[in-house]
Amino acid sequence: MSKTINKNIQISLLLIATMGVMSGITVVSSLPLISQTFSHIPDIEFLSKLMLTIPSIIIALFAPIAGIIVDKFGRLKPLYTGIILFVLGGSSGFYLHDFYAILAGRAVLGIAVALLMTSSTALIGDYFNEKGRHKFMSTQGMAVALGGIVFITAGGFLAQLHWSYPFAIYILPLLFLPLLASSLYEPKKHIHLENELEIEAKLWPVYMTAYFAMVLFYMLPTQLPYLIIDTLHGEPSTIGFVIATAMVFNAITSRQYAKLKGRFTYIEIYMITFIFFGIGLFIISQASSIAQLFYSTAFLGIGFGLILVNTNAWFLSKVPAHKRGKASGMLASSFFLGQFSSPLIFEPIIKIYGIQGLFLIVSGIALTISLSLFLRGKIFKY
């Protein structure tokens, strides 16, 4: 089927993938302005940060339930429900003027993203064979990275006009609906052929990898801004430039995933990923100026461009068709639990060794993981 899959289906799935990155970073530039606008609310600086964390928590909690829904009711009904909730919850800050109502809208956004991620991942598994998946997910990784650049730039520009304007970007998926409705189709029901316990045993290593990889990688958006502002005395705009530069390398690397997968195993790609990630973190740990940070962006972008695509591809190679919904929900939950846990796990290290000390320590962890995977491969080979 993957050879004959039409372009409209592929474009539809790519558009859905960009909604995931849209959900998180679009309103980042508005957070300081939201704090100023609602300054009469106690602890508003802390509460405004919940604009980013509440969707992640909701996704982590709701994604397994969303997966069960996708397996029971099909892929498309949850998908379209997710899009409507995405528009309503995401755009709440554009037309609502009560802070807590907007916060509730962010929780609705989390439910929406959980439905979108589980249903779209299941559809990719249904529509493509393994070789076709690798090729498509190369393009998907590039689309997500480019989408991240577009949305963080557009959000920053609109925030300069008014804090509420970036929330209007969440209305954009309404324009996707005609193409999605005319292109996507409900796959046929799948027969249960494998033992449930055997399936779970095969998938838990993927879930654990997704969780720990996100704990490590999510230290960049959560810790790097403080390094740039507090330690290196950079401007807020510098944060966007550094992240956007890394995303360019992310996009280029993701696009090459299918070729890499043709030469290397999933484990070997993880080994390469952690080498690049470790080098990038080491450069950051030694940086004494903003300019030196940009030397790390190539390594970090390559690492991040590989980790997500490789994990999703590895996951779909292991999960049987009838479990794709529920298992996709567990995978999404693993990713977002990693995001939520990352700053909590690393805060004690920062208090003792500082932010650059944290980057140095995690650099050593990443390179140790890569060495362990290399030795594991040699042991199994012999």
Rank of each mutant, 00 (worst) to 15 (best):
K189Q: 15
A210Q: 03
S183L: 07
Q160I: 00
L161M: 04
T209K: 03
T231I: 01
H162W: 06
M247I: 00
G234Y: 05
F249D: 02
I243Y: 06
W204P: 04
Y218Q: 10
E196L: 09
K188G: 13
L172N: 10
F176V: 07
K188M: 08
P178R: 06
R255N: 14
L172V: 12
P187H: 05
S183K: 07
Y257K: 03
F176Y: 15
F217Q: 03
L197T: 02
I239G: 02
I152S: 07
L158T: 03
L179C: 07
G155I: 00
F151D: 01
Y218G: 02
L224Q: 09
K189W: 15
P225E: 11
E200H: 14
S182Q: 15
I229G: 11
I152R: 01
V150F: 11
F157S: 02
L174W: 11
M208T: 09
L260Q: 13
Y170Q: 00
Y185P: 05
S164A: 07
I267G: 05
W163R: 00
Y266L: 07
G234V: 03
M208Y: 12
F264R: 04
I267F: 12
A244H: 05
Y185G: 08
A201T: 13
V242M: 05
P221Q: 09
K189G: 15
K259F: 13
